[in-house]
Amino acid sequence: MIRKNSPLAKEFWEKGFVESCPVYDMHGHMGTHYAIYFAAPNAPEMVKLIKRANVKKLCFSHHFSLWATNYVGQDPALEACKQFPDYLRFYCGINPNFPEQMMADLKKVAEWMPYCIGLKFLADYHKIPVNAEPYRPALEFANALHLPILFHTWSMSPYDGPDIMKDIIPKYPNITYILGHCFNSQWQVAGEIAKQYDNVYLELTSVPGTRGALETMVNICGSEKILFGTDMPWFDEHQGIGGLLSAQISDDDVHNILHRNAEKILAPFI
């Protein structure tokens, strides 16, 4: 039953969802992908799946906005949100290799709200460090509007690793930093950065299920600084929740991670 003596785990186990513990998935994607077959790549089937776990909001960036930025832009994401406004919000995918497209998209972010909740940076794939000049207009924009940015972050990355992020966080203090993947495998460093800055959150995509990672970060920065995410459709909501419930943290921590922290961040967009 995963976690003994836990009413929360018992209910998730029996029903697959808990009414009093909704889920906010802060890191999703959408659309087909060059390297992976997805059973549920598009909005209708994704929404069907997230409902099973009582996911109230899935915040995603569309694959096409990140890989085919200048051809497709944000239209597929916006359309999906309009189709399922109760369940979907999107991050504007930023690819600074196409600065004209980036600037055009930034100009529209305000009109896309509340469907658009912020920006998504995928620096490891776009091969530009987030503290380099091409990202500056997007950072200044988000800082001016007090927006969240979901960063893909990875261990030792020269594009979005801990040293790079520590360089930009103090420079743009109004951004809500959501550090996707928690610098995968550098759990201690991730916890320390989240503890140091009030506006930095760790986001768990690909982490739940990895033994010991959650406990390390919760012990350092507290569950109040951690957000749930799955990379949906990359990973299954129940796999992530199962991993979270397997970690040796409290039910109160699980509530913080699955919904309380996200509810605060998303309040202006719901």
């Binding site: 995963i2 186990w13 776990a53 033994r211």
Partner: peptide
């Protein structure tokens, strides 16, 4: 995949697969 992965993650995914 234990011990690298927690056993409960895929247990819940199987339990609630459609």
């Amino acid at each position: 995949g234990a011990p690298r992965y927690e056993r409960g993650a895929m247990m819940l995914a199987i339990k609630h697969a459609d």
